[in-house]
Design a protein around this nucleic acid. Sequence first.
DNA 1: AGGATATAGTTGCTAGTGACAACTAATGGA
DNA 2: TCCATTAGTTGTCACTAGCAACTATATCCT
Lengths: 168, 168
Amino acid sequence: MPTTTHTGKSDLDRDARDLYAALSDLVRLYQFRDRDTICCHDISVTQCYALQSLERGGAMTLTALADDLMLDKSTTSRVAETLERKGYLRRERHPEDARAMRIEITARGKTLCQRIERDLMDEERNIIESLDPAVRRAAIGVVRDLARLAAARIGRQAACCAVDTEQV
Amino acid sequence: MPTTTHTGKSDLDRDARDLYAALSDLVRLYQFRDRDTICCHDISVTQCYALQSLERGGAMTLTALADDLMLDKSTTSRVAETLERKGYLRRERHPEDARAMRIEITARGKTLCQRIERDLMDEERNIIESLDPAVRRAAIGVVRDLARLAAARIGRQAACCAVDTEQV
DNA sequence: AGGATATAGTTGCTAGTGACAACTAATGGA
DNA sequence: TCCATTAGTTGTCACTAGCAACTATATCCT
């Protein structure tokens, strides 16, 4: 078995395939874990993402929130509407721009958000507690790197169908 | 800084938090990447998952498909209905059980599925091509292990809200 | 055999997701 | 001042998702 780098192309293809398969599994499992954990708490996954954005980023406009969530303004507007109705955020006119809204998480929203994050983190702990500490640290580094690479590549450009020369 | 394992509890907490944060980022980015890549091809993410299940698992009943997708029978039934209308799968009475359906991917469905997987894999390759081959292999191993652990922990038990003693 | 029970799948209902397009209102530059 | 731009909302369409009710078939028990 060659450990050198001279067969780079086919290795890369194989690695891409393997990583794709492994990441697909991981992402799907976590999606369902998130859904099952979050949905016990009165809000949906998208609504939870929105609250997390607001908790971390502080008060922001609807457009900023939409960018953060990588969603259309209209979708974001309705998500915010639902969350306001449920009492987890506040919407008020922006003091410096009468067109814009200032969206802010409420204390109730913060509490909910923290409870959900605690639950998710507990799950996380259960999942990794069997791992050797050194392996755990390595895993964290790897996942961070992958996330960083993915963000650099696909991160903040949610443009769909920019290139599509062939059709089904 | 202690490199021994005698402070296991707080290390585990910290690692759980770090891994939670890193994985959250990764999962969200991949969710959006999947959505943007798949939605260029006439079907939704859920529909694509269903086709992938059918491509890998071969013909199966609706209940089996629902289990695989971790979705309710009713949702699965409607997903299958849409995919049949679009010509990507076939539904027929099961030869051995007149209650059941035999759901099978069509050639057209297979082609679509492969095209999407190729696109996703291309993305994957672009993301990891900057990594050293040894690092890539290590990353694949780590992701696989995490997926395996997650599957063992949360995998095939999509029961929601089994324990919930406190309310908001 | 025949009735009770269980299983497979569909359909009605409700709520939410998500995009696009059309719209209102306010801003800001020429 | 007027016009293009920007912020957000609303209408519409298609799909996602779960629960509950329903039909049809299968299986189990006596």
